[in-house]
């Protein structure tokens, strides 16, 4: 912890003299100048100028709220339908304005899929999805931050080529490699496990690329000064780069979490027993070719969406928390 403080302090101290990662702009120039010159009162005035006027703020909020309501209108359809007990009523009303209204709301659909009477152990599937999600996210964060950092600040050659190669791998559509991968997993006896549902997604080209772009924002000078202090490559990574990129970490947690949560095709191929079956696969069975159980499907979708929403709400405060640390970066 002491080490961390030292590095960050030295980063701030050494920084103004060095080049910054940004293209020098006029604003940055003046930012540096004013920092020392400005009196308290002047700062206050500017702060005031930056804050939008209160009445404009309310108007903006109102407009944003209106837009948000318009955007989530289709989801109101989903929610109201999940409260209708009769699946034939749902299909009959879908497509007219009646779809938005519920005359006699009932939680039967939710009870049917989650309650003790459910024909399949949905609670178990829910737990399985949670385990797979947690594992995948944890692995992804660890693997992709390390890779991105090594590819940005490592001193070996062909870094840019490797990065482009990794992005190229993202092009390969999952549908193209799924069958060979399935045959492979059957051969190495990894089917029907949690591990096989997590491993293929941990080294995600897209999140390696994302961390790469965000790490770029941290001036190389910080790493350099830390190095003078005697910090190793690994130490600089997890004491400077990781803590300075909480917004990116949170973003990847949410995005990868939701991707893993909604994985469908892959678990469909490698999962057999109920022990490790995720919710998506279980829900798909409401969709048999001849008969669609709309009532349960809609309720299950709402249930499916909740954990990701909670994940988002819990983690989004770190978007704000990181503002304090951003000052270090100039």
């Amino acid at each position: 912890m002491v080490m961390k403080k030292n590095i960050q302090e030295s980063a701030i101290n050494k920084n103004p003299g060095k080049e910054s990662a940004f293209q020098e702009s006029a604003f940055q120039e003046s930012a540096r100048r004013t920092k020392g010159l400005l009196k308290h009162q002047m700062m206050h005035q500017i702060k005031h100028q930056l804050q939008p006027h209160k009445r404009i703020g309310y108007l903006k909020t109102f407009l944003l709220l209106l837009l948000a309501l318009l955007i989530i209108m289709p989801l109101a359809l989903l929610f109201s339908s999940s409260l209708k007990d009769d699946r034939f009523q749902i299909t009959a009303e879908l497509g007219s304005l009646k779809a938005f209204f519920v005359t006699n709301p009932s939680f039967n659909n939710y009870i049917e899929i989650l309650g003790p009477q459910a024909p399949v152990p949905m609670a178990r599937f829910f737990l399985n999805s949670c385990i797979v999600m947690a594992g995948t996210v944890a692995g992804t964060l660890l693997v992709s931050t390390m890779t991105a950092y090594a590819l940005l600040r490592g001193k070996f050659r062909f870094k840019r080529v490797i990065m482009t190669g990794i992005i190229a791998l993202y092009i390969i559509p999952a549908e193209a490699i799924m069958l060979p991968l399935l045959f492979l997993s059957v051969k190495i006896h990894l089917t029907d496990t949690y591990i096989i549902q997590m491993l293929p997604f941990m080294a995600s080209p897209i999140y390696i690329f994302l961390f790469h772009q965000f790490f770029k924002e941290i001036p190389a000078s910080i790493a350099e000064s830390a190095q003078i202090e005697g910090a190793s490559f690994w130490k600089i990574f997890h004491l400077v780069y990781v803590p300075l990129n909480v917004p990116a970490l949170v973003t990847v947690t949410i995005l990868q979490g939701m991707e893993s949560w909604n994985q469908y095709l892959w678990p469909l191929l490698v999962v057999r027993s109920e022990n490790v079956r995720p919710m998506t696969v279980a829900i798909a069975s409401f969709f048999s070719t001849s008969d669609i159980y709309w009532d349960r499907l809609f309720a299950a979708s709402v249930v499916m969406m909740m954990p990701i929403l909670v994940l988002y709400l819990v983690f989004q405060k770190y978007f704000i928390a990181s503002i304090a640390s951003s000052a270090v970066k100039v």
Partner: peptide, 30 residues
């Protein structure tokens, strides 16, 4: 910074997990 053995070992160590996973689960099947 001098190019020390430990440094390059750490760099490679951080890079390998991803490369192995990508090779195994994306490149090989492709």
């Amino acid at each position: 910074s001098r190019f020390s053995l430990l440094e390059s070992f750490q760099e490679l160590g951080m890079l390998t997990p991803a490369l192995i996973l990508l090779a195994l689960f994306v490149m090989t099947p492709f």
